[in-house]
Amino acid sequence: MKRLPASVAVNILLVLASAVALFPLLWMLSVSFMRPGEADSFPPPFLPRAPSLAAYKELFAHQGVGRDFANSVFLASAATALSLLFNVAAGYAFAKLRFAGRDRVFQILLGALVIPGQVAMIPLFLMLKTVGLVNNFGGVLIPAAAGVFGIFLVRQYALSIPDELLEAARVDGASEFRIFRSIVLPALRPILVTLATFTFLATWNDFMWPLIVLSDDRLYTLPVALASLSREHVQDAELMMAGAVVTVLPVLLLFVALQRYYIRGLLAGSLKG
């Protein structure tokens, strides 16, 4: 009987904490449906008096948010495809193929994880400028493709594929490519979903790098466009909230759908330290 109050307390605390975590997001949704100016009153209204799509119409018709949305979708998808292609090949090679200096190179790569990306930002920017990739989607994508973290994730998972299986296939005369396609890829499937989710969310949410590389507003991604919009329309709460909804909702839905894979990647990543 003594347990009951404790149990109630734990669950009430959880409800409160979740409310704090979710409230700003719910309020964003509510304000985004208010009519222009409605949110600028005191006390702040919780729900729109008459739900309206005015803010969304303004965003898509006059602020070019449809184009920013398309840019974000394209960049995040392309980065995901590139990262899968590159990291899977590299991760598998580090785990299962024998080549000179393999372990040494891998250790150096792990060391590179310690170096913050910002140190490399300026030289990378100048390098891309010389080859004409600044103010261009290529410049946003190239650094996203080759992540040490992705290689690490795939390698750890690929280590669990039994060597005997690969040897047997080799003895049977299967080519390396065939082995990769018919044995390795199916075995790696779960970690590929993890890596894809991670890359997509990271590219979608990334701010500083696209801010630096893209100067033409027709190429802006949603976060960059939203930041520039928020500097112009400081007072326009409904518009800003609608912009936030358009930016946040896709990744939030993706996360809810794939959270099992995402959390596994997060835990694998935390072991790297």
Binding site: L25, N205, F207, P223, L226, S230, A244, T247, V248
Partner: peptide
């Protein structure tokens, strides 16, 4: 997205 929630 950090930028979006910062706006909120």
């Amino acid at each position: 997205t950090l930028v979006a929630v910062a706006v909120i």
